[in-house]
């Protein structure tokens, strides 16, 4: 799978309150959540981003609350993928569970600039910066997370497992 898009850059420690503020959590409708994505990090973000764009951030992306609404809002808004130097633990699980592609790469996080066009090869973790003509590598996706993805997410994986046990 190749993920191609234009980059929006964010800094370190982007918390889930910035990704989707709690004042909008009286619903879990992905379309409603998408309207406010990243609003407290950049209030114009929901209007200026386009479906297919990619977020590149610093360390500890998605820290704070366990709200799955955060990756859901990003996915529903059409964010193609998130690259960060590191991800907070619960956000990392949630992203895989709901099918938002995420990649860890210090090089990509440091060198990619806002507005760059990039292409990620999800299979081998290669990140190509089409604007700068450079290439970076992301950490390979752990085997178990690949298993979750190929099963179609955690619920499908659990279904298969429970069937196997029955």
């Amino acid at each position: 799978m190749h993920l191609k898009g234009k980059v929006w850059k964010f800094g370190n420690d982007i918390d889930t309150d910035a990704i989707i503020p709690a004042r909008y959590l009286n619903t879990s409708d992905p379309k409603e959540l998408a309207k406010h994505v990243m609003e407290d990090a950049d209030k114009d973000f929901p209007s200026k981003m386009q479906a297919g764009d990619i977020i590149v951030a610093g360390k500890n992306f998605g820290c704070g609350s366990s709200r799955e609404h955060a990756p859901i809002a990003l996915k529903a808004a059409g964010i193609n993928a998130v690259i960060a130097r590191s991800f907070a633990r619960i956000f990392y699980r949630n992203a895989f569970n709901i099918g938002l592609p995420i990649f860890e790469s210090t090089d990509a996080s440091e060198h990619i600039q806002e507005g760059d066009a990039i292409e990620i090869d999800a299979g081998n973790g290669t990140v190509k910066n089409l604007s700068a003509g450079k290439e970076y590598s992301a950490k390979p996706i752990p085997p178990f997370m690949r298993e979750l993805i190929s099963a179609g997410g955690l619920i499908e994986w659990t279904k298969n497992k429970m069937k196997g046990a029955a």
Partner: peptide, 14 residues
Amino acid sequence: TGVGSTDVAAAMAS
């Protein structure tokens, strides 16, 4: 430990 809603859904079943 804290997890997301889907982890909880899977655990409610299994």
